[in-house]
Design a protein around this nucleic acid. Structure first.
Lengths: 190, 190
DNA sequence: ACTCACACCATACGTTTCGGACTATAGTCG
DNA sequence: CGACTATAGTCCGAAACGTATGGTGTGAGT
């Protein structure tokens, strides 16, 4: 029963296991991909590493098939439930992190050709429309397909994507929003 | 002149140096913190590691003070400008990554006490209002305080924060959006 | 003029994460 | 039955993380 530090992914796993009663890492991978994975990105390999780690700390219980694929199935323990409840009850929540390559590129678009920004905007508009559609499909599912809490997050996701799609479309359509390249205020230089 | 892989942070540094003509890592740290850092998070130590790396690849030129703090000042080279231009011209842009601890917690709120979600929502509302205000201050700066491209990104940031603030406020105010805790193996749901 | 305190600036470093390549097992279809 | 595809799981070197920590300039107070 080791002491371990619990990261957001730890709670994600605890929560997901608690919700489904039991889960294999692959189950997690699949279910996370279209729910909570949309606003907490991380490599799927984590879902194979984290549960055994939580099991070692006594927060999950592990059962392993003795045959074939030797799947590992995890269930939450009372300690795990307590840890999850404590996290949920804590008001804080840490700083949110965003990494949007499109926005990054846009930020420096003044250093490129005017056409660059337009092309970027068109691409981003398509991408965000697509994601918006994904969310729409999920939101169209019957009420009992997901817990209310997950549906709420979906609503914010929908809001984000709608704003983003409109933003990039406006940018792609209105040349006035994109100006000519401005050379850096630097005379002597390589 | 080594071959190196260029990451988003590489372009961020190239762009920032190109824009200002020259910069020390600290200059970058300060200017990034209130501009592009808002949608591309990373630890500031990177800004001390990346420029020398780019210099080794011939994309930046380094000058170091011989005295006192021995500050390193970087300027972009023609190769650097070419690399930056190529990146700006490329339509793609990589997958956007989001890590929002608040949204993560909300997603699992059905496993906690009803009060948890309300408390969370209140905290998030305050945090997003604050960030919204930061953006508003930046947006109120005179037109020549930042390039048009950066202003555009600010507008999307403003949009995101407004949506988020409204979302969390609605959640905090309307108990109907938050239901009682639902035990996992329960098929009946509202 | 001195010095003390604080803000500014810079980097080192142990730990964790990244992310993709790779392997293995199960199911399916001709 | 054999070949192909989808499912499921693992590995590992490279890169990023993020904080602790230690210099350096400056100016306020005496």
């Amino acid at each position: 029963m080791e002491e371990i530090a619990l990261t957001p992914v730890s709670y994600l796993v605890l929560g997901e296991v608690a919700r489904h009663g039991s889960a294999t890492p692959y189950d997690l991978k699949v279910s996370v991909a279209q729910s909570v994975g949309n606003f907490w990105s991380f490599p799927h390999a984590q879902l194979y590493k984290e549960p055994p780690r939580l099991a070692a700390a006594g927060l999950l219980r592990e059962e392993r098939e003795e045959t074939g694929r030797r799947r590992r199935t995890f269930r939450i323990t009372d300690d795990g439930r307590r840890a999850l409840a404590a996290w949920l009850a804590a008001g804080d929540s840490g700083r949110t992190e965003l990494r949007d390559p499109g926005l990054l590129k846009l930020a420096f678009s003044d250093l490129g050709q005017p056409g660059d920004a337009v092309r970027l905007a068109r691409g981003q508009a398509v991408a965000h429309r697509a994601q918006l559609e994904v969310y729409r499909q999920l939101a169209a599912l019957p009420a009992d397909a997901m817990p209310w809490s997950l549906r709420r997050t979906l609503e914010l996701g929908l809001g984000y994507e709608r704003i983003a799609a409109e933003f990039w479309e406006r940018l792609a359509a209105d040349p006035g929003l994109i100006r000519a390249a401005a050379p850096p205020p630097d005379p002597a230089d390589a």
